[in-house]
Design a protein around this nucleic acid. Sequence first.
RNA 1: GGGCGCGUAGCUCAGCGGAAGAGCACCCGCCUUACAAGCGGGGGGUCGUUGGUUCGAACCCAACCGUGCCCACCA
Length: 872
Amino acid sequence: MTDTPRAAQATPALSAQYAPGEVEQRRYEQWVADGLFKADSSSDKPPFAIVLPPPNVTGSLHIGHALDHSVQDAVIRRKRMQGYETLWLPGMDHAGIATQNVVERRLAGEGVSRHDLGREAFVERVWQWKAESGGKILGQMTRLGDSVDWSRERFTMDEGLSRAVLTIFKRLFDDGLIYRAERIINWCPRCLTALSDIEVEHSDDEGELVSIRYGDGDDAIVVATTRAETMLGDTAVAVHPDDERYKHLIGTEVELPLTGRRIPIVADAHVDPAFGTGAVKVTPAHDPNDFEIGQRHGLPSLTMMDEHGVITVHGPFLGLDRFEARPAVVAALRAEGRIVAEKRPYVHAVGHCQRCNTTVEPRLSLQWFVRTEPLARAAGDAVRDGRVRVEPPELTKRYFGWVDNMHDWCISRQLWWGHRIPVWYGPNGEVVCVGPDDEAPTGEGWVQDADVLDTWFSSALWPFSTLGWPDETPDLAKFYPTSVLVTGYDILFFWVARMMMFGLYAMGGRQPFDVVMLHGMVRDQYGKKMSKSFGNVVDPLDWIERFGADATRFTLLRGANPGADVPVSEEWVQGARNFANKLWNATRYGLAGGATVEGELPTEGLSTVDRWILSRLQHVIGEVDQQFEAFELAKVCDTLYHFAWDDVCDWYLELTKPVLTGDDAEAKARTRRVLGHVLESLQRLLHPIMPFVTEELWTTLTGRPTVVRAAWPVADKELTDDAAEREVDNLQRVVTEVRRFRADQGVKPAQRVVARLEGLEAAGLAAHEGLIRSLARLDQGGGDFAATAKLAVGVGVTVELDTRGAIDVAAERARLTKDRAAAEKEADQCRAKLGNPAFTGKAPDQVVAKIRQRLEAAEADLARISSQLEAL
RNA sequence: GGGCGCGUAGCUCAGCGGAAGAGCACCCGCCUUACAAGCGGGGGGUCGUUGGUUCGAACCCAACCGUGCCCACCA
């Protein structure tokens, strides 16, 4: 057998290029078949649990999910390797309004409305959709390589979670934290349901502010509004109590135009005298502020619009849509001479339905609410007192701003898809909340509330309902509180704050998770948001198919520091694909060169180069551990990328070629063992980021069954070696400088360059002359050696070269002159600093010492460069 | 209207008090026996502007100019 590192001969097992498609599916199926992702709640190992933020069953996973999942998978895979009992629990969210809308749209394509089907049949259709869409999502997760425990998959509407919903609803109800009330809520006239505050998105829209005169003569009062049509529902005009202009009118009545009704003028401190005319029309049934004013003054609430936004008051406007009614009302007022100021454009914030973008209508209606004050305070305290850590910490301010100013949460939705509100109404006005173990009341006249709960109500239970709550299951005991919640900062409020509220409430004050890791949004290579209309959307499956799951994950994780948005592009995923291939080839080469993991790692007789790479490896392990603990996955990627590509591939593999092809069998054996160790350690370190290629390589290299449960590398201080690092660092500088010279001089690689190396001893490189010569392609100086260039390489080494007359003296002289100027400048700067008593007096000793060293180095460079210039 | 953040190489970003960095892009030279999805070399930034603190500022402070996001019931 031959020892030469010829890949083709020695390793038919690895092809010349990494082909992810061939590897990924096979590996994933094996992992699942072997139960490697299954958690054991009876294990003695310390627990580490993540619940997957359940994707909505509205469609398929997008690149943002791929980021979210990649972060979690990286974190959990490392913990699994570290010996924790890991649980990553998968599942999906029924996503009430979003899913209902999707299915309704599909039905519309068939010319059917949900009302044609009826409630039961419609819900059945949604379940069909869920089966279809959910299956697609699960398939995508396997393609990404998610190491989730499939045996514990949950759905927010499955039986167990429904029981959890009933349980907590009943408990909140009994504690007086859920109530039913007639309030102004956000209403979507298209979805025909109430919305919570967070389901409303505000945008600055241009409206028209018109001023309308109410009343006549001395009693006339002018109000301004952007929503003229609502004057039909006015039941008062309000002014500030101290406003001298209107004091005399307070308590009187004016005639409301177009209606013939007379309405009172009331004084309310809410009115800003400086805005507009200082007088406000009051429409309690259609404006939240006006509702408050109405409550304070006992005003009637007059509803003048139905759930579709159509005018319901009798008269010329009856049956008009709200947006048709607006100009119609203005026109009618103008005809009566009531418009006192011309309409003027006015930009103001208008709410839109998050799901369909319809302008939200504040509407007085009877809804169920959660009294959030005590829950939100606890949710804030858990972060304030450090029980829950938020990464990045900057986002805690936003979190506090939210939980400390939370309005009561409207939880009833006039939808069919969701958890039905477990409240029954009796024939005599009885209201009964039915718990999970209660019998629903039967008999004449009893009906269940028709509404369903806000989808976030069940999502808020996710970290414990999925573990079996309200039962005291082994899973709940073992894995609650979960270790970390990973999600995008965009749903900090929607979801995280609510899980905190319900988790603390349901679990006796125990937080749902110890850490919240918030990642950013995936953007394109110019930092732009991805959007269908912009055409810059990336389909993760497309990338997985073309570049592999590992490359896709690496591309995403390479930007995934806490709170940071993640720009991606096809060029970058190509780079990541190249990286996977680089690892592949490095291992292929290692195997061909006899890399092995058998036997103890030798400690005696190691070469400087071996000691150097082992030392570097220990530093890398330390850095990566730190970065992982801080969830700085972008830094993890960066550290490992450079270690793998620069240290291992570009230098270590090259530096060890002479040994591996040489005659010293013992030295060769040692290096083979070190090479094996470095490669397999690198594969273990990269496995959380790039699970597939590392699995394929590690199992091939080690002959062991899987890297999934291999031990995570631990840094060994014994193996760090500063001297070896310095030595190799010097060696690299010499080699690089010679290469630079050759490139500058246009010396062809094949062209013979005879050289004499001086000063190696002093630089500690005496033993490495051979390596330097081979890497820099320098020949031994022969009898006809005639130095034509003298090269100082900065570590006290001088290289005299004979390039057989090919030296461009002018170019080299110019470069040296430039270098000399730089060295002079450097020396001057250092001297100036050292001559400054303020600096030497106040700066730390090590800084001063550093400057001294710099000065010495600069002076040495000056001397060397000068002599070189003379020699040229 | 409040709050938060960001402006560093052509692009995307790291560095956050002691000599300006990475990836990609670009330029030059190479099929050197793991890898051309590669190898070697190189150019490119007065770190948004103006002041201040400091022996020393990309880094701390202030103002300004850009820009992004979140929250918000002034008609």
